[in-house]
Design a protein around this nucleic acid. Structure first.
Length: 103
DNA sequence: AAAATGACGGTGT
DNA sequence: TACACCGCCATTT
């Protein structure tokens, strides 16, 4: 579907997130061209096919908290998968200090 | 064209 | 620290 230009941009950025790292919605929003469009970013993740082609599970909230995830396993599964990839978790949240993606 | 929706972000209490 | 409210943007109906 190309009825959403921003969507393609967000997907592209999400795909660029290196394994073992995570990016915040605000981060993708900023890289996509709208620093305050974190909400729109989440909207794209929601409709996203969730498949490995777009690692939406590497996208977390601004504070490192896992939110949403309509895929199988839900948020808990997302967290497990991130840990498995090498992302460091801190108190149930992603340790952005060490695992946040640097664009 | 307008209104409603949504996987956010920040601030206040 | 946790919960609640408001404001933000883009998509879809």
């Amino acid at each position: 579907m190309k009825t959403s230009p921003l969507k393609e941009k967000i997907y592209d950025l999400t795909r660029k997130i290196p394994k073992g790292k995570v990016a915040t919605y605000g981060q993708l929003a900023k890289l996509s061209g709208s620093p305050n469009a974190a909400r729109a970013v989440g909207a794209f993740m929601r409709i996203n096919p969730d498949a490995p082609q777009t690692p939406c599970h590497r996208v977390v909230a601004s504070d490192g908290s896992l939110t949403g995830y309509s895929g199988v396993g839900g948020v808990p599964g997302k967290m497990s998968m991130l840990i498995k990839e090498g992302v460091t978790f801190k108190n149930g949240k992603v340790d952005l200090s060490s695992s946040q993606w640097q664009a």
